[in-house]
Simulated scan of single mutants.
Amino acid sequence: MTEIGRGPAEEETFFDAVGGEETFRRLVHRFYQGVAEDPLLRPMYPEEDLGPAEERFALFLMQYWGGPRTYSDRRGHPRLRMRHVPFRVDRAAHDAWLRHMRTALDEAELRPDLERQLWDYLTYAAASMINTLDDPA
């Protein structure tokens, strides 16, 4: 009897390494708990309930990091900068966003190398969303 080979071992994705969907959903939920109470960021979410925004962000992060392609199946290409154009994203908004994300990431208790990789991406992404220069004093 011949055994059918599986081919080269599949490489573990970042998504799998951090704990998959459960980890990303916890991270994003904690992030939105901070956003819900933030006077600068909350107005950027026009929906009364933050649930839809939370779902979109969780799906985006999961797909970006190697999980299911549900985000693109539902919403198409992410077009992050375009989707943020209607909102004033200045340095203060950037800082507030990262502050809530830092809290969420700290509470996620990821392995240090994975935490650093995710944080590097999040800080890069936050900086790329800035679309309003601070007013000179």
Rank of each mutant, 00 (worst) to 15 (best):
P78T: 00
G66M: 00
R88F: 06
S72Q: 14
A92V: 09
E109Q: 11
Y71I: 10
L98D: 08
M101F: 12
L118K: 07
Y71N: 10
Q117H: 15
G67L: 01
L80S: 05
R111N: 07
E47L: 10
R91Q: 09
V89P: 09
L80T: 14
G51Q: 04
L114F: 13
L114S: 13
R74Y: 03
R99G: 14
L105N: 15
R111S: 08
E107K: 02
R102V: 06
E115F: 00
M101S: 06
A108F: 06
D73Y: 08
R83I: 01
A96Y: 03
P112Q: 13
E55Q: 09
Y71P: 10
Y64A: 12
W65C: 07
Q63Y: 05
D95R: 08
P52I: 01
R69I: 08
H77W: 03
E115H: 12
R116K: 14
F87D: 03
E115D: 15
D73V: 07
H94C: 13
M82S: 00
L110T: 04
V85G: 03
Q63F: 01
L59W: 05
L61Q: 00
D73N: 04
A93C: 04
L80N: 02
H84V: 01
D95N: 11
T103A: 15
L80E: 09
E47N: 09
L105P: 14
P78A: 02
R91M: 11
L105I: 15
E48H: 09
D90R: 05
G51L: 05
A108Q: 12
R74H: 04
Q117R: 15
E54D: 08
R99F: 14
Q117T: 15
P78K: 00
D95W: 03
P78S: 07
R75W: 02
R74Q: 05
M82I: 01
Y71Q: 06
Y64F: 12
D106P: 12
L80F: 07
T103I: 15
R75Q: 02
L98G: 09
R116M: 14
Y71K: 09
W119L: 14
D106K: 13
S72L: 10
G66W: 02
A96E: 15
